[in-house]
Design a protein around this nucleic acid. Sequence first.
DNA 1: GTATTATATATGTAAAGTCATATATTAACG
DNA 2: CGTTAATATATGACTTTACATATATAATAC
Lengths: 198, 198
Amino acid sequence: MSLTHAILGLLTITPMTGYELKTQAFDNSIAHFWQADQAQIYRALSAMAEQGWVESRLEIQEDRPNRKVYYITEAGREELHRWLHTEQPLPVHREPFLVQMFFASELDTATILNHIARQREGHAARLAHYESIEISVHDDPEIARKRSFWRLTVEIGVAVERAYLEWLDRCEAVVRELDQLESQPHDQATFPNTSATD
Amino acid sequence: MSLTHAILGLLTITPMTGYELKTQAFDNSIAHFWQADQAQIYRALSAMAEQGWVESRLEIQEDRPNRKVYYITEAGREELHRWLHTEQPLPVHREPFLVQMFFASELDTATILNHIARQREGHAARLAHYESIEISVHDDPEIARKRSFWRLTVEIGVAVERAYLEWLDRCEAVVRELDQLESQPHDQATFPNTSATD
DNA sequence: GTATTATATATGTAAAGTCATATATTAACG
DNA sequence: CGTTAATATATGACTTTACATATATAATAC
C-alpha cells in the first residue's frame, strides 16, 4: 500500500506525529499526488507500529494534548527501499466531472458553463498552490538531490493543472459554439459531409 | 456515487448487459476517466434495479450464456439528471509513482531511469489509445452535440498524457544530470549561492 | 485433442478510503 | 462570555474498490 510507504518516506525526513503528518505532509507537501484523511493516517501508523516499521515515543505536554512522535525503524527503512524498487502501475483516474461532461448533452448550456466555471476555479486554486511552492536550491549536494526530486513532483502538478485550465477554456468555447448552432435553423447542417463515417 | 451515474448515462445511449458495459463502455469508451471492474458493475446493476433506476430483461441464447439486458427507467433518467446538475469535486489524485519520485533520492540512477522508462511506456500506450479514438462528425445536430462532448473528454486525456510524456523526458534529463554531478568532486558545489534561503 | 479465449453472470472476502463523532485543552474572536 | 479554531489522538460504521474464484458453453489456437 502506497499510503504506508508515503508515511515511511516522510518519516525519513523527520520523526512526526500523526497530526503533523496530516497537516504538514499530506495536506501540504504531497497533497498533489497523495491524499489521506486523518483517520487513515492514525490507523496506518498503528498497523505500521505492529509491523515494526515505526516506533512511537509519547511526549508529555502540559498546555496541549500529548504528542505521539513516530520514528522510522531499520525494518521500516528496509521496507521503504524494497517498495521503492518495485514497479508501480499507472494511476487509476476517476473523475466525476468528466462523467458529467461525457453526458453533458443532457444539460442546458447555462448549467454546463457553470460546472466548467466551478472546475476552473478549483484547478486555478490548485495551480496557484503548486506555483507557490518554492523549493530553493541548496549547497549540500545530498539535500540538493532530494529537492530536485521534490521539484519534479511539483512540476507535473503544475503541468497537469495548466493542461486542465487550457482544456476548460476550450470546453467553454465549444459549449458556446454549440449553443449558437442550436439557436440557428436546423436545416443549415444539411450540406454534404464527406468525413462522416456513419 | 459516480459509478452508478456513469452506468445510468451509458444506458441512455443503448440498453446493455453487464458484460457489454464492462468490455465496450468501461474498458473502451470511458476508460480514460472512469475505471470499474466487472464485479463492481454487476453489483451496481443489482443495486440500481432494486432502486428502480434500471430494469432487466433476460434474453435466452442457445449457443451462448443468456444475456441480462438492462434498460434505464424513467426514475433512472430523473436520477441521472438530478446528478448531472450537482457540482462535482475535483478528482482526488493518488499516484504511487510520484510517491517514488518524491523519495527517489534513496534510489540509484539506474533504478530511477528504469522506473521512468516503464511509466513512459504506459503513458505512451495510453496516449496512443486516446489518439486512436475517432469520433466522427455527424449531420444530425443532436448526435453531433453528443459527440462534441465525447470528443472533449478524449481531448483532456490526450493533453494530460502529452504533459506526462514531456515531464518524464524532463525527469530523465534531471536524473542524468544529477548522476553526472555526483561523479564529479563534491567541492565543486561550494561557490556562493545567493538564491538559497536556508 | 487439449488449452486458451470469448461470452456471460455471480459471489466471497479483503483492502482502502470516507464520514462522523468522541475526548481534552488552549487560544483567539466577536 | 460563549463560540469557534487549533492542537492532538482515536474509534465506529460505512462505502467503494480490488482480487480471486465459480459456473457454463462455444469457438479458436496450438
